[in-house]
Amino acid sequence: MEFWRVPLDVDEIQITRGIVYIIENRCKGCGYCIQFCPRQILEFSPKFNQKGYHPPVVKNSDDCVNCHYCEIICPEFAIYSVEVSDELSDSYNEIGDDNEFNEEVNGKSNPHR
């Protein structure tokens, strides 16, 4: 039995979404962003940056909620998120229809589409 009820405004609640950007060569590999991202969407990249550290890489980019926590806890100004605006989503839709672009970006067609 479930004790909670569905909120009345559940259809109206919008979860903000974000795009995470990483400036790899600024990173010193402390791992704070990975450890404390509330959505646990980051992990260490296997590759090295110029300074010899493993920067983070986004493993599940669709789950970023644009909370900016990684942005402020990062001591190196190396990671930040930007809200996915409607305008961006629109431009994405156009891109999304373009299969060549998908292949170019992912090296293969996107299985989610």
Binding site: R17, G18, I19, V20, Y21, I23, V58, S61, D62, C64, E71, F77, A78, Y80, V82, V84, L88, S89, S91, Y92, I95, G96, F101, N102, V105, N106, N110, H112
Partner: peptide
């Protein structure tokens, strides 16, 4: 999807860069 959004747009500056 966000991966592609990221690839589609030029990476903006870090918001504290200024």
């Amino acid at each position: 999807m966000a991966d592609k959004l990221r690839a589609a747009k030029k990476q903006p500056d870090h918001p504290l860069d200024d």
